[in-house]
Amino acid sequence: MSTRYVLGLGGTVDYEIAWTPDVLDRLVAEHAITPDELDVHVPIGSERDLLRTLLAFVRDGVGGERFVASSDIVAAFAGHFPVRVTLGGTCVRAAIAMDVLGLASTVHLVSIDDHVRRLLPASTSYLCSAESDSLDPHLIVQFPAGTTIRVGSDEVVAPHPNRIIYVNDPPNRELLLHPGLPDAMADADVVLVSGFNVIQDAETLEHRLADVRKGLQRLAPGALAYFEDAGYHVPALARRVRDELSGLVDVYAMNEDELQSWLGRTVDLLDADDVAAALVELASVVPAPTRVVHTKHWALAHGGDAERYRAPLLGGITMAGTRYVHGDGFTPDDYAATGTTTPQPEGVAFAAALESVLPSAVCVPAFALDTAAPTTIGLGDTFVGGFLAAAGRA
């Protein structure tokens, strides 16, 4: 019998803009933005505010997700650039990645429109809680390393490639769940939970957690429950999700940004002693059976069942690496080719050192990948798809 995957909790329609420095130079000049105004934390109530945060992200070479006061701001800003419409959300991108390997899944959606119907893989079925069509696009901005934008008398230069997400999405903010979701979860072999980070109201969160709890408590023996953490629009709500889900899921996963957010400090991702100390600290903060952390250098599992996830970690790294090089539309042959690529030397050294100093951790190095046009959008979501695909086949 084939593995039954149920992936939740919400998908998105994404407007991916083409990075166009001359347009950005023009917008910076039109809005008279000065270097001292760049701030990733400023509330985004206008195109000007969005641009201030975008330039700050580029300056720092980091990614993130920010709430925007209106979807109109997203649409207006996207209107300055060439735009490609894609599907996003952790569950949907994971399903798309798994479809490449011939794996069917069921996704849970909270909104739908003709973009979703057109772009969702034919192998992917869905439950949708929406009673009518709606469109609240997410703005996805991907920038390359070394890109330069003139800001007043200064230049902003990106030290690393990355991506930023700008969003005002009422259906995902409400995250209304389909009444059939608990039954679907009860029949599943692998369940993905994600998407709580967009909720901004504590009472709404409590209702959604209660609904998901019903499904998780009905999982069959041996079924895998995986939670993917994210950047919360209301950071205080992350603790409530942790309190509820740490004891209900098998894997509590995150990237390096969420790791550092939980610890309240930066972590040197290539220093085995620093990461080992961070993992020990994280275990007390997020007491799930196994914690997974995925980065551009490596992916690891830490906890009592860590060794069980060595192959899924490699599956996740391979899938994310394939997307990094090939973007959307990669093939099974692309995936297979990525798996034969030489691992990053620094990642190999780190993985060996970490497993030596922290035997309760399993670490798999990322691949040494070189491309002139890397895709940084959706790598974490694609990692999840690769991880779950391999876990379901184990």
Results as ranks from 00 to 15, higher is better:
E256T: 11
L135K: 00
T341D: 02
R213L: 02
D273I: 10
F67D: 05
A223P: 10
G339E: 05
E355R: 11
A283N: 05
W262I: 03
L216H: 03
L282W: 07
G339M: 11
D328E: 12
R240P: 02
D370K: 15
V156E: 01
D60Y: 06
P159Y: 12
D334M: 13
S2T: 15
P170D: 14
A373S: 14
L300T: 08
V167Q: 06
G152F: 03
V40R: 14
E155W: 10
H31E: 11
E174A: 15
N162L: 04
G247T: 08
V325L: 12
Y166F: 15
T86Q: 01
R117W: 10
I165L: 09
L379Q: 08
L205V: 07
R218D: 12
V151A: 08
D25Y: 00
G195E: 00
G386V: 02
R84Y: 00
S132T: 14
A130T: 07
D154F: 10
V13A: 04
A311W: 00
D72C: 01
E281I: 04
L139K: 02
Q142A: 11
A351S: 15
I112N: 04
G303N: 02
R239K: 13
Y15P: 09
T318H: 01
R310V: 08
L300E: 03
A29G: 05
V167P: 00
F57W: 09
V110G: 01
S46V: 12
